[in-house]
């Protein structure tokens, strides 16, 4: 069979444009690509971590239109036009975001793998106004696991960042 006679495979890849850390970015992707894999494999933004890849650990947390969301449980194509903020998009040049600065100040990490997700989640929690007490922070941050057990310092960092962002 000549190449020209072969029936064309249906085009499975589709175009996608979204805003990544304040800039428009366009991709051509298969439907199976999650937002997480888009960021890491296509967007070069490996700061967003793939932990469990099943919505259980929170390491892949990003902001979608300002709200914290798990990028591993979202199809990228469903986010056309959305504004996505990852850990790479938080700092202002060399000036850390107040939540990043608070994590450094309070030593809120050990190995650091969960930290991008913790920080994006904390940014979301503070914006939601659900970080009023330490107990509220613990409850609101329960979707972010830390296997090093840095929880006490994470709570302290989120509380300090809340004050810094007032």
């Amino acid at each position: 069979m000549r190449t020209s006679e072969r029936p064309a495979a249906p085009a499975r890849s589709l175009p996608l444009t979204l805003r990544l850390n304040g800039r428009d970015a366009t991709f051509t992707i298969e439907p199976e690509v999650t937002l997480l894999d888009l960021l890491r494999e296509r967007g070069g933004l490996t700061g967003t971590k793939k932990g469990c890849d099943r919505g259980q650990c929170g390491a892949c947390t990003v902001l979608v239109n300002g709200r914290r969301t798990l990028s591993c449980l979202a199809l990228a194509l469903a986010h056309a036009g959305d504004a996505i903020t990852t850990i790479e998009g938080l700092a202002d040049g060399d000036r850390l975001h107040p939540v990043q600065a608070a994590f450094v100040e309070h030593d809120a990490l050990q190995c650091g793998f969960c930290t991008p997700g913790q920080i994006l989640s904390a940014v979301g929690v503070i914006a939601e106004g659900r970080a009023r007490t330490d107990d509220e922070i613990r409850e609101a941050m329960s979707g972010n696991l830390c296997r090093c057990g840095a929880y006490p310092n994470i709570v302290a960092a989120v509380a300090a960042a809340r004050e810094a962002l007032r």
Partner: peptide, 9 residues
């Protein structure tokens, strides 16, 4: 139910 991230989606 679930976590803050999941409830947002």
């Amino acid at each position: 139910g679930a976590s803050g991230q999941i409830r947002n989606a």
